[in-house]
Design a binder for these strands. Structure first.
Lengths: 151, 151
DNA sequence: TTTTGTGCAAAGAGTTTGCAGGTTG
DNA sequence: CAACCTGCAAACTCTTTGCACAAAA
């Protein structure tokens, strides 16, 4: 998407073009993915005066316009990323906290069957799926289960 | 599970039996599912002096012992429920906030294919799946997409 | 020049933690 | 009576909001 594109995207929805909005969008694209806090950090590297609350408000605007989206990996802050990024599902290992991205096609069957059975249109990218990765599922079951996990 | 069962479950793990732990477990079973706050409310109906932080600590203990588990429906507080409850996946509609429970068997194929492809053992009950329910997916697409959703 | 956006500070939800005193085994 | 648990208050993370001023159209 070119600069003109996102600018007109904002304008057509009644939003104004501000340097802060450009900076936040740039930061999300630079980082690829990041929490509001990380994004604010990247923005502040260029413009130290930009406030955190502005970052939050701007993320909402950019999301409303459809330029970015967010995913919940767990209990913490969500991660924002450009909306045009290839769709993928996040698998979070509750034992080692590793995050694995798998192409959305891997869960096409699931999406299809939920649509057929319940008419429910799942957005698999919005919430991560939790479980145990290959390494942790194979190794000592009980030890890993004992770990603190508030996710 | 009988009273003796959960008592020995706690004891065998080195935990002590306290009235607070009994009350919290009872509350979770009574409610079927509830947030820490709701559970605290139910507990306080019987014992007003029980502190919220005790409820949090107790939920951790009961979960560690395997008597209860929790599910994340979205951005807010998690919901705790008895561990022996029949497994189901939660579908959360981002348009109308409706929550639909579907049997875990409905996603068996997904679990199987992720295990085969990545060796990843998904716990489908831990995180809800977001999307649009039959009613909302069918009706006015754009209007619903405009809604505020921070989940 | 009207409307929208920003910075700041304060407040809000949800959760954790240090500590002194109380309870369990 | 030793180890553990609880209540309380404070702190912490993440996010939202009211308001006065600044900037965009």
């Amino acid at each position: 998407m070119t600069a003109a594109d996102w600018q007109s995207e904002l304008r057509s929805r009644g939003y104004r073009l501000t340097p802060q909005r450009q900076l936040v969008l740039d930061a999300v694209r630079e980082l690829g993915h990041g929490t509001p806090d990380e994004i604010a950090g990247a923005v502040r590297a260029k413009a130290p005066s930009v406030n955190l609350s502005t970052v939050y408000r701007t993320l909402d605007v950019l999301q409303d316009v459809g330029l970015i989206t967010h995913t919940h990996l767990g209990h913490g802050a969500p991660t924002y990323h450009p909306a045009d990024e290839s769709d993928h599902v996040h698998l979070v290992c509750t034992a080692c906290d590793d995050i694995i991205a798998v192409p959305a096609e891997a869960v096409d069957q699931l999406v299809g069957s939920l649509r057929d059975l319940n008419g429910f249109e799942v957005d698999v990218t919005h919430m991560a799926m939790h479980g145990r990765c290959a390494g942790c599922a194979g190794s000592d079951e009980s030890a890993a289960t004992d770990e603190q996990e508030r996710q």
